[in-house]
Design a protein around this nucleic acid. Structure first.
Lengths: 338, 338
DNA sequence: TTGAAAGCGCTAACAA
DNA sequence: TTGTTAGCGCTTTCAA
């Protein structure tokens, strides 16, 4: 990499002081027009570009926000992550901010990454995604009073801004729909229960069963790892029962798709022999006619960005806590019991 | 955000100089054990964490690599981008690096973003994705001799490290397969021709037609914008011809999927009435039985990261230029002509 | 209108 | 073993 031009270089070249050069380039109005012209042309000629790191150190701000993906292997490829990332990235770019991304598996290394970018002052704010009931990341950020917004709630009694979707209400509505179609044996492939959304969605399932007078049977509930493969494995177990379910609802679309795969392998027709539904409405869901609950993840990313930027600017948030109702999309994967 | 502890704070607290504190914490062995103990406990107590920005300024390195996504609207959500990002992010994290991401539409703003992170010294290296025939980004990086690797070749006569897939050979093989099935009217939905992969894949189409003795008809070629919607629109035009094609090949899966949608709307059965094929093998492709060409994008991301890190370390690359052969996956979307 | 000086927080060469 | 000094490149206060 060739030698860089700095303010010093220009100062030397033009004979002015570093201070004047800095001010001329920054557009201050207390610089003589002639001087500014000289300095600007010199800067141009030398290919000057400010060293952002130095500026950050001085200004104590980075114009960057951070996201640490709770990644488990290639899970980064999860459409959920890409969508939220897209929403955040696109919106943040408009304001001239950048996004710093790290991928860490949940646990000590993850928290260490938070400490690193927070204490190390690498970012001005953080977006926390996929919250957990006992979320140490949020506890930490609140304690440090560092600007952040979260996609999701927690069980912690802490005050912080978030957007969440009402997973309980959504799942409740879905199960109700199935019950109305006549399903009585509705199985559920749950998400890990330490994840807030996993807990909430499962609660919706439970509540719907209760209110429709159906029995909650533990053998009809499997916990999956949110992947397609996990969904497939869970479906296998559910179908192996002596009294197999007539409908299988998964806590996310990926597992629902895995379930559909498994049904196909077994020669069962989704939507006829067995109904399947998911949650998220990822692109593939529409293509395969999967009944699911839609939440506008991309747009939520937008909103989270706006909230975070406002926070960074020290503004007060008009609506710091939002819970969105997901929209039930009935598609071909669901029908009356066989 | 509460007050931060710096080296100075600890120096004041312990009575040692900033230098000694720095060295004690950095683990230099020319510090008395007793001193180190005192300093470390003080640091611990004060919750000290080094200011990474300051360190970067001093060390002239950021332990960060940059990726600027050529985004057009929510295109960030393109599985291609997510996958490559996943591959890069996961691999880079292992080495303790972070990823800085910006999203800019191709054009002046994009180049400006490159200049900003390069000249501004915000990153130690860059991954350029989705190269173009006349790629100004690459011309710029080469000229600045800044460490970078590219996913894709260019038409420029420049020496730089890249991994690319052989889009020409892949498409060639696919078209050949269709011809062997008996297709004579094979239409093509091309990618924009300024994109290297778009150009190459189209070339494969052309060459295959020639070699099988089929005619290249301009009216059988549409250029799409790589989205589902674009594929759908292009398919519409192709099907409106007096002599419609019996097979439609798209330059990427998303457009192929759009084509399938359109066929379905028209009541045509993909794979029977009309054959459809794509390129990329995104997750949905398998689910929908789309014939396509697979390239291991995620793993390519891994490799690009490794190459880039080696470059940053000043190492010599054993194999700086790699061209991978995509794998043809025949699925149900393709059959003999109706 | 311009410049000197201080400082952001850190590292490192050199001296003591 | 420890401290002094200088410097990374920038911004900003204050004085001239």
């Amino acid at each position: 990499m060739n030698q860089r031009a700095t303010l010093k270089t220009i100062a030397k070249a033009t004979g002015y002081s570093i201070t004047t050069v800095s001010r001329a380039l920054a557009g201050y109005d207390d610089v003589a027009e002639a001087t500014r012209a000289v300095i600007q042309s010199s800067a141009q000629q030398l290919g000057y570009f400010p060293n952002l790191t130095a500026r950050q150190l001085q200004k104590q701000r980075t114009d960057t926000i951070g996201i640490i993906l709770p990644s488990v292997g290639p899970r980064f490829a999860d459409p959920y992550f890409s969508l939220i990332l897209a929403g955040i990235g696109d919106e943040i770019a408009v304001s001239g901010y950048d996004v710093l991304i790290s991928a860490r598996p949940p646990g000590p290394a993850e928290l260490e990454a938070y400490r690193s970018i927070v204490e190390g002052r690498r970012v001005d704010g953080i977006v926390v995604i996929r919250t957990r009931l006992e979320d140490e990341r949020i506890a930490y950020l609140v304690e440090r009073s560092f600007p952040f917004v979260a996609f999701g709630r927690t069980a912690l009694d802490l005050d912080y801004p978030y957007i969440d979707e009402d997973g309980e209400a959504g799942t409740y509505e879905l199960i109700l729909h199935l019950a109305q179609l006549g399903h009585e044996r509705i199985a559920y492939i749950a998400a890990p229960q330490d994840l807030t959304f996993g807990y909430n969605r499962h609660k919706g399932y439970q509540r719907a069963l209760e209110e429709t007078g159906l029995v909650y049977r533990p053998e009809y509930v499997e916990v999956g790892d949110l992947t397609r493969r996990g969904g497939s494995a869970a479906a296998e177990k559910l179908l192996a029962q002596s009294m197999p379910p007539t409908a299988i609802v998964a806590a996310n679309d990926l597992m629902a798709l895995g379930t559909m795969n498994r049904l196909q392998q077994k020669g069962l027709k989704t939507g006829f022999d067995i109904s399947v539904a998911g949650f998220d409405d990822i692109p593939t869901a529409e293509a395969l006619g999967l009944t699911t609950l839609n939440q506008p993840i991309y747009r939520i990313g937008h909103q989270l960005s706006q909230m975070l930027l406002a926070l960074i600017e020290g503004q007060h948030l008009a609506e710091p806590k939002m819970v969105l109702k997901p929209k039930l999309l009935i598609r071909a994967s669901v029908g009356p019991p066989a």
